[in-house]
Design a protein around this nucleic acid. Structure first.
Lengths: 308, 308
DNA sequence: GAGGATAGTTGCACAGCGCGCAATCGCAAT
DNA sequence: ATTGCGATTGCGCGCTGTGCAACTATCCTC
């Protein structure tokens, strides 16, 4: 029970180190575009070519990795496709966003909800309220306005769906003058889209959809880059600052990005890095067992083991 | 140097066993639809839950595996999607078919070539000829007839592309009566498609495109089920039997299926099996280190070790 | 055609780690 | 509270992963 602290960095306690390495190999191969020479992979992962060779051999025997007969380069194999397809099938924005909803509710003390693009507009599917919620009649199943809600605006700006844009025009045409007056004067739809995109895709709204309520909404993308959901937080206008660099928008942006990542989305659509490794000497003593989450390890163990 | 034979089955000599296991875990999870309980996976892979648990823990730390917070089931994670996408990017019918071309050439002594669906029809991209080839003027870059070649027919029957079918009608309309007479009388296109599909997608042709030459062609699919290429073998009509169960068609079918598999295609579009494991007791003594290539191990070691 | 550089592969030996077992924990149903 | 199923983890034996260096294969240079 005492247990001093044998490992100063228990990233994988009780796991299988070789499995971690195997995973890093697959990810490294994917990061290189799905195709790489042994040396390039060794550079990417900072591991001995001989070590990688053995892993690749086993992964190849399982069909996750294949080889180009000519260039004898390693590439991801057919089984990797099947694994990927199964993974995509599991890609579920509602499940992925659940923890984010809870965190936003707790850290901001705000009402947080998730909406998905439905055929009638953004539809609320999950809602988390703090102990002391602002009174809103939003419930799961509720369909929000496209133009007069932060959620709808975030969706509109992120989506290229023609039907959605047509719905926005209908909504605008059907709106009474009093509501219409709350929007920009000329080309209100284009103006809203421009504004939201200028804010990095995050839509903010104050006393618009509901008086006394401010809201911020961010889109959630999947691995194809398509909008799969919108994450929204809202609170009383007085105590809920929605400035671009404020805590609310910052937290929302961070959470939305994390959820998107959980769906396989990658920031700049540049999932695979440079084809070759422009790095320090790949060979040598460096021998990271893995190397995925954080880069740059403080030091590599020398040949003689330190007394610890 | 003597080395009796410590391993009676060296499927992975010089590899990393744990990497093989990790690969099997990913594949097993994919086979279960990308989502499974620990016990279900243990049943699928015939391994101890404790063992799997450690692998899954490490794979989860790398993002290849995720967990459902509620059901605490294991599911394939976002990194698996990225790996799969990179693998799909590598999916290349020309590279994948190369070995098949060589094998067909050697085992059948036939000319074998690969064509891809081009905008002007099936286009030859790779051609392998035996030492003593039949004389044909087919070369890479050559565009084949849709209706009067086995290659074209196999493509037509496998493809739902409207443009291709339109091209087939144009070809038919433009053909002189003499060539037209070689085809079925009424609704020749539909008849050809029906005939090829009845033969399991394999098109055979005798003295049609070229006199004295028989050919058989089979489509190659990718992971989406789309036709990516057509594999064709041909030889002199006298010494090249193209009956449905003959050696030529059998070998062609086998090779085409293998290539398709190499592109991530799966026979019946039923890549993932039953959700639960309808198998013998998952737990117990059975402890396969892996379990991918061949199934059914002869026996499991009992609790008391036999003297061997 | 010889020589050499580059990249991939493998034998070896030590110690680090995987894994079967069983005890424990967590959760839900009764 | 009790029961039971499933997930998790400490333990310790001995299998196996790994750095190193020798070896091989392939391509380029002279």
């Amino acid at each position: 029970m005492i247990e001093a602290e044998p490992d100063r960095e228990g990233g994988d306690r009780g796991g299988v180190k070789a499995a971690t390495t195997a995973a890093a190999v697959l990810k490294g191969l994917a990061a290189l575009g799905g195709r790489a020479s042994l040396a390039a992979l060794a550079g990417q992962l900072r591991a001995h070519p001989s070590k990688l060779h053995r892993y690749l051999k086993s992964l190849a025997a399982e069909g996750l990795v294949a080889r180009d007969p000519l260039s004898q380069a390693y590439l991801l194999g057919p089984e990797a496709i099947l694994v990927g397809l199964a993974a995509m099938r599991q890609s579920d924005p509602i499940r992925a966003a659940e923890p984010a909803l809870l965190r936003l509710r707790d850290t901001l003390g705000a009402t947080a909800f998730l909406a998905v693009p439905g055929n009638r507009g953004p539809t609320v599917v999950r809602l988390e309220e703090p102990d002391d919620p602002v009174v809103v009649n939003i419930r799961p199943g509720f369909v929000l306005s496209i133009l007069w809600s932060a959620t709808g605006r975030a969706l509109l700006a992120a989506s290229a769906d023609a039907r959605l844009h047509a719905q926005a025009r209908e909504e605008l045409a059907a709106a009474p003058a009093r509501r219409r007056a709350l929007l920009p004067e000329d080309e209100p739809i284009a103006a809203i889209v421009r504004e939201v995109r200028a804010a990095g895709g995050i839509a903010t709204v104050r006393d618009l959809y509901l008086d006394g309520v401010s809201a911020a909404a961010a889109p959630i993308f999947d691995f194809t880059g398509a909008v799969r959901a919108i994450l929204t937080v809202l609170g009383p206008t007085g105590r809920f600052p929605i400035d671009p660099e404020g805590p609310v928008v910052t937290a929302l942006r961070r959470e939305a990005e994390a959820v998107s990542r959980g769906l396989g989305w990658r920031p700049v659509e540049a999932a695979h890095a440079r084809p070759e490794a422009p790095r320090p000497p790949p060979r040598g003593i460096a021998a990271l067992p893995l190397g995925s989450p954080r880069e740059g390890r403080p030091a590599a163990r020398e040949t003689e083991g330190e007394p610890r």
